[in-house]
Design a protein around this nucleic acid. Structure first.
Lengths: 248, 248
DNA sequence: CGAGCTTTTGACGGTAGTCAACTGCGGTGG
DNA sequence: CCACCGCAGTTGACTACCGTCAAAAGCTCG
């Protein structure tokens, strides 16, 4: 795990408490989490956090920033599997006995909250509601992956791009990252293509086509969708990545 | 929910207790599950169980048989998202407040164990270990979906087919469905193509090519892999769908 | 100003999709 | 009993979406 280690901020000051899209913890839960929390650390944009293949003794909650998770095949082909927004949990799979099958890279500078995987069992025993929330998060993640799978398996290149844009914007809205209906985030076309199972060149051409159609404007630093309803209709997107989520 | 309703078999007689790949429940857990269980029912091969879009008041554990889960777009395009083997949980997402985004169809005659979603909270409160197991299952499912996503996004048609075959056989072994190193199950080529994001015709041709290469033999009723090591190598498959799983 | 990354563009090729017809098999019913 | 139907699989011809290769143009940064 790379990154600069930091002080241990109190959970009462947790930045996620002010996040619109997240259901805040109650006092008892905060107190428990305070003891559960091992610390925080930040990572810089572009750096790896979890590394594929390693067994991590930790679980993390993303406090700020955006990451993405990916898997890489032996010959280098990469598939980006999902994006991680504030409040999302990382490393749960690794915590469940198995070596980590995916890596994680930061799209922006980010800060993570660290928990010990060994003590997850305590969490279930002492805070059933938090255990339930953990399952909720896992189920939601599963649902997002399913939608993603539908895109890659059955949607055309243009539809995939539109779906991804909508998904990211919905998640951005829920986590307060969207301003003036556009999401400021740097995703390279190479990353987009690895997300959608397309080649870089084709991704580029498809993006241009969508700009021309006025469906999605996606530059290196910003995503915006002029008319969300039209876009959803075009891509046959129904998923709901918004809504209130629990966390930690 | 279609299907014939049945008597309520005791959990002590649960067929899953004898399944090699599943970690059996202890007596306390069995007792709890007995009260938690609402009944059983069977569905016939080819029938729908969960229906996309509905809100189900139940969660199910598959006791016998094999199902698959899928999502359908408005215009009819279908993506099969995963296969369900004995011991797997179904409907967790629906239980977590959201309308069900996928449907479920039986590949064989199957029998399901029914639980009430309302009482899931009790489970977390009274049986933390089972709550943990639930999360474990969700995390494992997530992991399987990721691997599937890598296939559809980044593997060639031949690799995808080989991966799927390996995955199904591994799961079949773990649940005792594999005999003489071949899995007897009826999956149509149409279903395969909807799983892998390919067209029906291309799936057919790819299957033939793999038969010719001697990598995978996949007929309407049976899947077998002559040399598992060679197949794994060919498909760059590392995932581990085997291993002991918890259930319920 | 040059190095390196990202985007863009052009040309070409191949994997995979579409359309369509035909075979084989099992079940149903006249 | 056999014609008929429906489903699954197979095959051929054609198309096109998308991948690969290659090169150039913009940008950022040291």
């Amino acid at each position: 795990m790379t990154g600069r280690s930091q002080w241990k901020r109190d959970c009462i000051e947790c930045p996620l408490l002010e996040c619109e899209g997240l259901r805040p913890l109650d006092n008892g839960q905060l107190k428990f989490m305070q003891g559960f929390k091992q610390g925080e650390f930040t990572i810089d944009k572009g750096t790896q956090s979890l590394v594929q293949g390693s067994i991590s003794p930790h679980v993390y909650t993303l406090l700020a920033g955006v990451l993405f998770r990916y898997r890489i095949l032996e010959d280098g082909r990469r598939q980006i599997v999902n994006f991680v927004f504030p409040g999302d949990l990382i490393g749960l799979q690794g915590a469940m006995d198995d070596p980590l099958l995916h890596g994680c890279e930061a799209l922006t500078n980010a800060t993570l909250c660290v928990f010990s995987r060994d003590r997850i069992v305590e969490l279930f025993a002492e805070q059933p509601q938090l255990g339930y929330d953990l399952t909720w998060l896992a189920a939601k993640e599963e649902s997002a992956l399913e939608e993603h799978l539908v895109s890659v398996g059955r949607r055309t290149a243009q539809e995939r791009l539109v779906c991804l844009a909508i998904f990211l914007i919905e998640r951005g809205i829920a986590t307060g990252l969207v301003k003036k209906s556009s999401l400021e985030i740097s995703i390279t076309q190479s990353q987009i293509s690895d997300t959608l199972g397309l080649s870089l060149v084709h991704t580029n051409r498809t993006l241009q086509a969508l700009r021309k159609k006025g469906l999605v404007n996606w530059s290196l630093t910003r995503i915006s969708i002029p008319d969300m309803a039209v876009a959803c209709d075009f891509a046959q997107y129904e998923g709901n990545a918004g809504g209130i989520r629990p966390y930690i």
